[in-house]
């Protein structure tokens, strides 16, 4: 009976510890979100979203930074998705485990571990200076694309790995080529996983500050082309808070940022569930 009691006790302690881990994680998250939202939401109004900042952001809204955020994210995703998914397909379907795939995976692993400020520095030296693209949407988007590439590759590769081998065999047995097998039998089934990776990339692009500040500048003017400099919402938040311009406006921007990320995730989830329901 002693053993039983000990096992019972272990079970109880484990349960409490695990609950505590989960609750404290959620608690910290809730604390941050609530803090920003409670300070920021009073600032939010239609005018806050639709007016551009005036006098360095002390007054007006955040319209131009919303445009900047969206523009950079779109460039980053448009560039990183085909490269990332293509690399994942190469690793999963077009090459056997060997030296080349190991070198590529090692490279991806390194990229994933690099702090974002390094991507910023790289973007600044390479895109802004060397390629003479200046502080611009293009420079910023390309640097962000490099930053989110490992995420997209890894999630896409996992999604491809999860496809049962029988689908490949059936497709080949019906006379399919490798390309037909990839595009008709594998990719459609891996789409939900790949999409999840892309959404992760979207959220990281929206939130990123260090890369953007070094590659896209901090202009508050509404951009007119890919070569215009922009300021994103996160950078705006950083500058407002760091330079003590207006904590009120900073919190407003922070709240808008959190709501944007929430919105992206909700819409993505909804689309994803619809896609999955339609197919299964």
């Amino acid at each position: 009976m002693r053993i039983n009691r000990r096992r019972y006790l272990t079970q109880k302690v484990a349960k409490i510890l695990i609950w505590m881990a989960a609750l404290s994680t959620m608690g910290v998250m809730a604390l941050i979100v609530l803090q920003v939202l409670s300070e920021g939401i009073p600032v939010l109004s239609p005018r806050f979203f639709l007016e551009s900042p005036r006098s360095m952001g002390r007054e007006g809204g955040i319209f131009s930074t919303i445009i900047g955020t969206i523009a950079l994210t779109v460039v980053a995703i448009v560039v990183a998705t085909p490269l990332g998914v293509g690399t994942a397909i190469f690793l999963g379907e077009y090459t056997r485990e060997g030296r080349i795939s190991r070198v590529i995976r090692f490279g991806i692993g390194c990229l994933a571990g690099v702090p974002s400020i390094i991507f910023g520095l790289f973007g600044f030296v390479f895109f802004v200076i060397y390629l003479n693209m200046g502080w611009s949407i293009l420079s910023g988007g390309l640097a962000l694309a490099a930053m989110i590439l490992p995420t997209i590759i890894c999630t896409a590769e996992e999604a491809l790995k999860a496809i049962p081998y029988s689908f490949r065999e059936v497709s080949y047995s019906l006379g399919g080529t490798k390309w037909e097998t990839v595009t008709r039998a594998i990719l459609p089934n891996a789409m939900p996983g790949i999409f999840t990776g892309i959404i992760l990339g979207v959220c990281r692009s929206i939130e990123e500050t260090a890369v953007v500040i070094l590659t896209a500048g901090s202009s508050l003017i509404i951009p007119t082309s890919l070569f215009s400099p922009v300021r994103t919402m996160s950078v705006h938040f950083y500058i407002l808070a760091r330079e003590g311009i207006s904590m009120e406006m900073a919190y407003g921007t922070g709240a808008a940022l959190i709501l944007l990320v929430l919105f992206v995730n909700i819409v993505a989830n909804w689309r994803l569930n619809r896609y999955i329901r339609k197919r299964a």
Partner: peptide, 8 residues
């Protein structure tokens, strides 16, 4: 094949 394996 051995197991029915239709595509989704």
């Amino acid at each position: 094949f051995q197991k029915p394996n239709p595509f989704p």
